[in-house]
Write a protein that binds this DNA or RNA. Structure first.
Length: 417
DNA sequence: TCTGGGGTCCTAGGACCC
DNA sequence: TCTGGGGTCCTAGGACCC
């Protein structure tokens, strides 16, 4: 048995959200459009029950200038980007740059519908597919029929054609010996492009790129590398691995070295179990624990109900309950507590989360509150007789006190300190 | 009137067990 | 009595990704 060369593809939908919106509202083609701010609602004028979306007149669309609030841009069309508008920018700031840009609320339902459509097309041809969010996947071409033809180019073309036919959307694909290189390759010929990167293309195609192009090197690491005079992947590859470990820790340092040399053995993984589920919200204005106690309590309860509903809907229970708050100065803190029983009940979650809230200083205003449930297990695994309670851990005095406290329900609004 | 929401993984210290 | 090391769990924070 001869082993085939590894052919890994990364497929990335082109400007996914914006493209889906343009399918619905073709009259917006070429105009500056910004997507973000809030979620689309049932009663939105942009979502009329009687259809005919393509006939909605341009002046019926909301403009950026009318926006009030703390939303950020999820994505923007090319025409909008020309005004200096970009992803993650605050909408109020974007409104100053281009007040007449059209603002569409995000519609995750619709994006997920298209996501299912294009992934169905891929799975019909290549079953080894790894989800990387709504608009991205990795695909293992290695053993797929036709996957070795023209080093993967032929299959990539077939996938693009099938996706375009079924969704009307274009995508870009990179094919390489591993996920790391495939991810970079998929950016080379955007939009609607295909790029192949082979073992021998490392120095020519990868090394001249800035370090930030490596998936896993973010703004912090990039800045630190730049301060050390390292800008390109070639320069990173030339670094002494021992020095990288010193600077970035053993594990990350070693990974940086491997990545710069284009080495990555991670398999394409078709299944994954969630580790945690959370809900969080940024308030319209910063809230104070005392003055805005009622409002805060109501939001807190709602977050617990939402995360509990998510758990139930997806069939999970968890035993690590946590909260997150962000202060008005944007500093965040988290607290969590691991209980000895698995839960998905909103009241129980509310109780444990309430105890976590009491452990955090609430002397300044808050802009965000979040609730998280971790240490997840499938609810049916618990139902089948696996222990709902874990063996009680020998715990420190402090933990014991917290456990005792948390077993007693507190008032409807948690009022720490 | 800067800076969303939902995730994963890693690190590091302390507790605790053997 | 003193010293020590490995392993695991828990917690808080941070980097990163989509």
């Amino acid at each position: 048995m001869t082993s085939l060369p590894r052919r890994i593809a990364h497929l990335d939908m082109d400007a996914f959200y914006a493209s889906v919106e343009l399918l619905r509202y073709p009259q917006l083609k070429g105009l500056p459009v910004v997507i973000g701010g809030r979620r689309r609602r049932e009663d939105d004028v942009l979502n009329p029950a009687d259809g005919g979306l393509d006939r909605i007149p341009l002046d019926a669309f909301p403009r950026l200038s009318g926006y009030v609030g703390r939303g950020v841009i999820t994505t923007a069309t090319y025409a909008a980007r020309q005004f200096g508008i970009g992803s993650a920018m605050g909408l109020m700031k974007a409104a100053r740059l281009c007040p007449d840009a059209i603002l569409l609320p995000v519609d995750f339902e619709e994006y997920r519908r298209y996501s299912r459509l294009f992934k169905e097309q891929i799975l019909a041809v290549a079953p080894l597919m790894e989800n990387r969010g709504v608009d991205e996947v990795y695909i293992d071409f290695t053993g797929v029929e036709g996957g070795q033809e023209e080093a993967g180019l032929a299959l990539a073309r077939r996938l693009q054609a099938a996706i375009l036919a079924s969704t009307g959307l274009t995508c870009s694909i990179g094919v390489a010996p591993n996920k790391l290189l495939a991810k970079m390759a998929s950016e080379f010929n955007k939009p609607n492009g295909i790029a192949l990167v082979g073992e021998d293309d490392l120095e020519r195609q990868i090394w001249p790129l800035p370090c930030r192009k490596i998936n896993g090197i973010g703004p912090r690491t990039d800045e630190k590398l730049q301060r050390a005079g390292i800008r390109t992947i070639a320069e990173l590859a030339a670094c002494d691995p021992a020095w990288l470990c010193e600077q970035f820790g053993r594990s990350y340092g070693q990974w940086l070295h491997e990545a710069a040399h284009g080495r990555d053995e991670r398999p394409v993984s078709t299944h994954s179990e969630p580790v945690s589920m959370s809900r969080e919200t940024t308030f319209g204005r910063d809230l104070h624990a005392v003055q805005d106690r009622t409002e805060l309590g109501a939001v807190f309860t709602r977050l617990c109900e939402q995360v509990a509903a998510d758990l139930v809907r997806k069939g999970y229970v968890g035993r690590t309950i946590g909260i997150k708050i962000r202060y008005d100065n944007f500093r965040s803190v988290t607290r969590d507590f691991t209980a000895d029983l698995y839960m998905a009940d909103p009241l129980l979650i509310r109780q444990f989360a309430g105890q976590c809230l009491k452990r955090v200083p609430l002397d300044r205003r808050l802009r965000l509150l979040g609730v998280r449930v971790g240490s997840l297990r499938r609810a049916d695994a618990i139902a089948e007789g696996l222990p709902a309670r874990t063996p009680p851990r020998r715990s420190s005095r402090r933990r014991d006190e917290e456990m005792t406290l948390s077993l007693f329900p507190s008032s409807a609004e948690e009022q720490p300190e």
